[in-house]
Structure formats: structure tokens, C-alpha cells
Design a protein around this nucleic acid. Structure first.
Length: 605
DNA sequence: TCGACTGATATCATAAAGTG
DNA sequence: CACTTTATGATATCAGTCGA
């Protein structure tokens, strides 16, 4: 019954053209008189005349129209009553302890960005094949809910191309986004803590500085107020804040700034043949150290992997277990295979494989090794696989700003992580993102190769003000713009992940030179990363109210910036509580209370 | 044991129509 | 006209299952 008898256009006409005047009248008599005037007009309106269904007589339609207005009047009245009676109640909702507790719990999860939800190939597979899995589940006996998991397991086990899913999973993993998530979480937590009132009246402000791999720092603050009406400190004391901010920036940069991110060029290069296929370089094994050999090999496989149109990095484990799925075993009889960066792949195995590659996969070889094409084959520009690799790990390969770049989202090699602990490039920063909607004029895409995931969501119900500096601390403090993040660019959430594993040295990926004509791959000769599997993904959450984020993106020492890539990554697997959904949520104070009537949940949008 | 995921169910706001 | 009833949509919550 809630479905309107009128079409969308008719509803719009009623609502926009006629309703305001009707509701503006202040007496029943005036409304009645007005109604008698407008109903005939409406029936003659181009959206209505001849467009009202035959299921009702004209008299009935006239009654429906009148009813529409009367119902609206009734709704207006009830809302007014509610408002009058519950002004304080509404206020209290913002401070509802239960809501606050919930917010805090969610925030805690957010802070556990690194500790939740191992996002792996299977979860990607699940998200992309939900229907298929569901169908499969229905064919099984027993509990449907439980069957979903069984079905998933079965289909996943049977999936021949797990590697591509694994590669995709790696893309959802990067530090900049973790930083954003941290801010979202902090913002929400501050709000919840302040509103919970367990601390009584409270004012909070968190100053932060994040380091970016391109040498810049990203500073800002988060505020929380027990009274949401309270101004942020930076607003109320702009000069003082500006002064403080300068000092803070100096402090933050002192301790957060990363070492020179310039790439370390290697003395080795990965040659590329006329078709763009990377070939194994001719090496003098007498002059190559074991570590260098591993590195060269790793980069070579990365290049080859990308050349095949695959994403991420080679999934060595899967390749090893199912070589036939990844290359033509009849043509290429590798003596052994494994991740050259891990010690489990022994020195002798590395040598064995290197010798084989030198013989069978060099520029002079008739049939150099080639991976079977992956699902990215249709993506342009990846033939040369972003071959510029200044640094060490394959991470450099993914520095392309273009989402179509094959080398997207490569963290460390599978099971590999930088031992430097420094995060990789991909400065798809919250700031960048948020700056978009904060209307900051200064181009924020301050890092190259950044993989900007437009993960802006409106879940940051706080306001975010960016302070974009260009080397002068706090120099733009007055440029703050406040804008409800609800209005923020909301893109595909796919990119909430980030590469965690970074190149051991240099992270030269930031130095990507997109010279498509280059036909060699510079191989960084950095140290081999240690193995450690840490692929995790944070659960997106929404921020709550009552606090403000201010950020300052500092570009000190940043190299030439590139246009931020706004292409969303492949869609992040939709979750029951996903960002999109969450992001639609309004702050408790504004959010309409839960509605529902016991019907089955409909597919969420 | 706990957290995550699922489908099922409960709750509430809203809109259209019915009733006195 | 005011109020009630009915239907629907959206979201929260619950219980069962699985895996770490």
C-alpha cells in the first residue's frame, strides 16, 4: 500500500509543484479551498492528463490526489508534533549511550585495521561468485546457511584460476588506505567517546602526521566534542592553531619523513623482446650475488606475470602446485619453481632455475617463458608492464597511476614483506581523496604512482578540512573548507585495500617514469624481503558525528606529481556491512530510526 | 571460544487508503 | 478532518555454522 498510485513523474510534480504551497497554508479552510483549486489543475497537468491508469475512475483519481495532499498534511503535522515534543529527545539521540557504545565498538574494529579480515583470493572469489555459490548451495542438502560455506569451499577448491583471485586480493591492501581508515575510526571513536558522557564534558583533539613514501607528510587533526555545537579549536583559534600546526609539522616530519624515496637503479635490467615480453637477462653467475639473483628473478617473474595480463604478483605457491594453470608445461620444463625471495626456495634451486631461464628464456631463446594470459588481457598499456622498476620488489611495477596498469596493487611478493617496515608508495591518501570533496584548490595528487582509491565515503560524518601545504607548514590553514563528507565523492569501494608489503629498498616505484617505449626493466638490487604473510583488510566503517578532521598534506620534497588516478579499482567484495552501505548511514543524531516490518531482507543496494 | 558470515525475523517510519 | 489500518521498505538483530 505504500507504493504510490502515481508515477515517479507524477509524484515529483505533486511534491515539487503543488505540495509546498498547500503545506504552507495555515488553516484548514485555506487548504481546502486551495485543494479544490489545484486538483482540477493537476488532472489537466501534462503529467496526469491521459496518464492516469484505467484501474480507477476519474473520480477515484481525484480522491487519490486529494488524499495525497491530506496525507502529506497529516505527516507534516505528526512530524511537527514529534519535533515539538522531542526536541530534547532528538538531541539526546546524538548522545545515546547505546549508539555511542556501538560506535565505539565499530571504531575499535577500525583501529584494528591490521588485525581483521584476512582478505584472500577466496574472499574475492566469494564476492564475485555469490550467485553461483548460492546456486550450488541450494543443490546441497541441509541447512542453507551452512551450505553457503560448504558450497564456497567446494567451488573454490575446484577453481582453476585461484591465482588471479589471489592477485586481486592483494590489491586491496595498502597503507594509505589504512591511514584513511585510521582517521575514520579515530574520528568516530572521538565522537562516540565524547558523546557517551562517561567522561563528562570533554574536548578532544588528536594531532597526527602520516608519512608518505614520496617524502611528503600528511598532517592534520581530529577533534571531538561532547557538545556537537562546539567549534573546533582550529576554527576558534585560527592563529594559535596555525602556529602550533607549523611546529607540529616540523615535529612530525622530523620523525615521520621517509628516507629519500628515489629509486635505486640496478645494474641489471630485464630485457623485453619485440613483442614486449620480458626475457631473462644474460647474467654472469660469477659476478652476481645470490641476493641479486633472487631479486632479478623475482622482478623478471613479476614482469612476465604482468605481461600475461595478470594482476598483482605471481602467486608462486599456486604456480608451483598447478604449473599447468599458469604456463604451458609441455613447452616449458622448469627444473623447479618457487618464490625466489623466500629462503624456502633454496640457493641451489635459485641457481638451477636461473640457469634454465638463461638458457630457455633469454632474448636469444626461441621460446622464452611466458605465463598463460590472465584476466587482464584486455587492459591496455600493460604490454611493457610498467617496466620501469627503480626499486627492488615488484611493488614498483604497480606504480602505474592507471588502473589499467597491469601492475596494480602489488605488495610484496606472496608471502614477502619488506624488512624495512616502511610502507610502500601508492599514496592514495585519504587526504587526496578528501581533498576532492573538500574543494581544496591545490592539486593534491602529490605522489606518483599513487594508486588512489577513491574510497571517500560519507561515513566520515565528521567534517574534514584539509590544509594543503606546499612546503610551508600550516600555510593554508585559512583555506579550510568544511564540507559534509556525505557529499563526498563516493566511488567504488574497491580500493580500500592497499599494498602492505613494500619494496625492501627505496620504493623506487614512486619514481615511475611512464615511458612506454622503454624496453628494459631496471631491477633494484635491494635486499630480499623477509617472508611474512600479512594480508589483511580493514572493515570499512562509518564515522560518527561531532568531530572534525583536519588534514594537511605536505609536499615537502615531493617529486613531480601526477594526476591522481580516479579510476576505481575493481569492486571491493561487497560485504554485508560494507562501506557503501555504511556510508549511507547518517550519524545517529540524524539517522532515521530503524525501520522494517519483519519482511525478508531485500537485496541491498 | 570468539568473530564473521548467512538467512530469517523483528522493528519502525512512511505512504496510501479506510473509517467515524 | 482526524485518526486508524494496511502495506511496504530499510535496517537491526538473532541463531546456526564455520574457521582461526
Amino acid at each position: 500500500m505504500s507504493s504510490s498510485p502515481f508515477t515517479i513523474a507524477q509524484q515529483r510534480t505533486l511534491k515539487e509543484d503543488y505540495l509546498p504551497d498547500y503545506l504552507a497554508l495555515d488553516s484548514d479552510q485555506a487548504r481546502k479551498k486551495h485543494l479544490n483549486t489545484i486538483v482540477p489543475q493537476i488532472l489537466e497537468h501534462e503529467d496526469f492528463r491521459g496518464k492516469l491508469g484505467s484501474e480507477k475512475t476519474e473520480k477515484d483519481w481525484k480522491a487519490s490526489i486529494m488524499k495525497y495532499f491530506k496525507n502529506r498534511r497529516q505527516t507534516q503535522r505528526q512530524q511537527q508534533i514529534r519535533k515539538d515534543a522531542g526536541t530534547t529527545l532528538t538531541q539526546n539521540l546524538a548522545h545515546d549511550p547505546v549508539d555511542c557504545i556501538k560506535a565505539m565498538r565499530k571504531a575499535v574494529k577500525l583501529f584494528q585495521v591490521l588485525g581483521h579480515e584476512n582478505l584472500d583470493g577466496q574472499s574475492i572469489f566469494k564476492s564475485q561468485n555469490e550467485e553461483k555459490i548460492r546456486e550450488h548451495a541450494t543443490t546441497m542438502s541441509g541447512n542453507a546457511t551452512a551450505n553457503f560455506k560448504k558450497a564456497l569451499r567446494e567451488l573454490w577448491d575446484a577453481e582453476p584460476d585461484k591465482a588471479s583471485y589471489e592477485a586481486q586480493a592483494r590489491e586491496y591492501w595498502n597503507v594509505p588506505n589504512n591511514q584513511l581508515q585510521f582517521l575514520v575510526g579515530a574520528s568516530r571513536l572521538f565522537s562516540a567517546v565524547c558523546e557517551y558522557k562517561h567522561l563528562g564534558k570533554v574536548e578532544l583533539m588528536l594531532m597526527y602526521t602520516f608519512a608518505r613514501e614520496d617524502g611528503t607528510c600528511d598532517s592534520g587533526c581530529i577533534s571531538g566534542h561532547s557538545n556537537t555545537e562546539t567549534n573546533d579549536f582550529p576554527d576558534e583559534h585560527q592563529e594559535a592553531y596555525k602556529t602550533f600546526f607549523e611546529v607540529w609539522n616540523q615535529y612530525g616530519e622530523k620523525y615521520c619523513k621517509n628516507p629519500d624515496p628515489s629509486p635505486q637503479k640496478s645494474r641489471f635490467t630485464i630485457p623485453v623482446d619485440s613483442t614486449g615480453r620480458p626475457c631473462f637477462p644474460d647474467l654472469d653467475f660469477e659476478k652476481v650475488t645470490g641476493e641479486e639473483l633472487r631479486e632479478v628473478m623475482a622482478v623478471y617473474f613479476n614482469s612476465l606475470w604482468l605481461f600475461a595480463g595478470r594482476r598483482g604478483q605471481p602467486t608462486y605457491a599456486y604456480i608451483k602446485n598447478s604449473p599447468g594453470s599458469f604456463f604451458d608445461c609441455t613447452r616449458y620444463k622448469l627444473p623447479c619453481f618457487g618464490n625466489p625471495r623466500v629462503q624456502e626456495f633454496t640457493r641451489s634451486m635459485v641457481m638451477q632455475l636461473a640457469e634454465w631461464l638463461c638458457e630457455h628464456s633469454s632474448m636469444s631463446a626461441p621460446e622464452p617463458l611466458e605465463f598463460l594470459s590472465g584476466q587482464m588481457k584486455d587492459q591496455p598499456d600493460d604490454a611493457t608492464a610498467r617496466v620501469e622498476m627503480g626499486g627492488t620488489e615488484g611493488t614498483e611495477l604497480e606504480t602505474g597511476t592507471d588502473d589499467t596498469a597491469a601492475g596494480v596493487g602489488m605488495g610484496g611478493t606472496e608471502g614477502t614483506e619488506s624488512e624495512t617496515g616502511t610502507t610502500s608508495k601508492g599514496n592514495a591518501e585519504a587526504g587526496d581523496i578528501l581533498e576532492d570533496h573538500a574543494s581544496v584548490t591545490e592539486a593534491p595528487g602529490d605522489s606518483e604512482g599513487e594508486r588512489v582509491e577513491p574510497v571517500v565515503r560519507d561515513d566520515l560524518c565528521s567534517t574534514m578540512r584539509d590544509m594543503v601545504g606546499s612546503g610551508v607548514a600550516g600555510d593554508s590553514g585559512t583555506e579550510r573548507e568544511e564540507e559534509n563528507v556525505d557529499k563526498a565523492v563516493e566511488e567504488d569501494l574497491g580500493g580500500t585495500a592497499m599494498d602492505r608489503a613494500s619494496g625492501p629498498l627505496g620504493d623506487g616505484g614512486t619514481e615511475q617514469e611512464k615511458d612506454e617505449t622503454r624496453n628494459v626493466v631496471d631491477v633494484g638490487a635491494g635486499a630480499v624481503g623477509k617472508t611474512r604473510k600479512e594480508r589483511r583488510k580493514q572493515q570499512p566503517e562509518h564515522a560518527s558525528v561531532g568531530q572534525t578532521l583536519r588534514r594537511s598534506i605536505r609536499h615537502n620534497g615531493a617529486k613531480e606529481t601526477k594526476e591522481q588516478d580516479t579510476n576505481p579499482t575493481p569492486t571491493l567484495p561487497s560485504k554485508r556491512v560494507n562501506l557503501n552501505e555504511d556510508s549511507k548511514e547518517e550519524p545517529p543524531s540524524k539517522r532515521p530510526r530503524n525501520t522494517g516490518n519483519g519482511k525478508k531482507s531485500k537485496k541491498r543496494t
